[in-house]
């Protein structure tokens, strides 16, 4: 298994939209390296042909009927949801432009 370099940590941080100062990146890279070393203990286990288990239950085909929200639905809708946002205008969530001015 490969270990991440501090530059890679910066890429991961960018993907996760987190700011990491060089110093923090280096410290976390060091910690991650130790953790990944430890994760590498898994290499010793023979998992050839073993199915991965992404789920903790063996359920299948859990669906809901295609029926609109009824009067008894206790979830809030529309305006009540919009009002949770920190900044709104013209019935929309306001966000900064993709590119700065």
């Amino acid at each position: 298994m490969d270990k991440p370099q501090p530059t890679e940590i910066k890429v991961l941080a960018e993907l996760a939209r987190l700011r990491l100062e060089d110093q923090t990146a280096a410290r976390i890279a060091g910690q991650l390296e130790r953790i990944l070393d430890w994760f590498r203990s898994l290499d010793a286990i023979d998992t050839a042909g073993v199915e991965p288990s992404p789920y903790a239950v063996v359920l299948r085909n859990v669906t809901r009927p295609d029926e609109p929200a009824t009067a008894t639905d206790d979830l809030p809708h529309g305006q009540d949801i919009l009002n949770c946002g920190p900044e709104q205008t013209k019935d929309c969530y306001l966000v900064p432009p993709v590119l700065g001015s």
Binding site: P76, H77, G78, Q79, I81, K90, D91, C92, Y93
Partner: peptide, 9 residues
């Protein structure tokens, strides 16, 4: 109306 057809989900 914008954002009239939403729920927490």
């Amino acid at each position: 109306l914008a954002n009239s057809n939403t729920c927490p989900i």
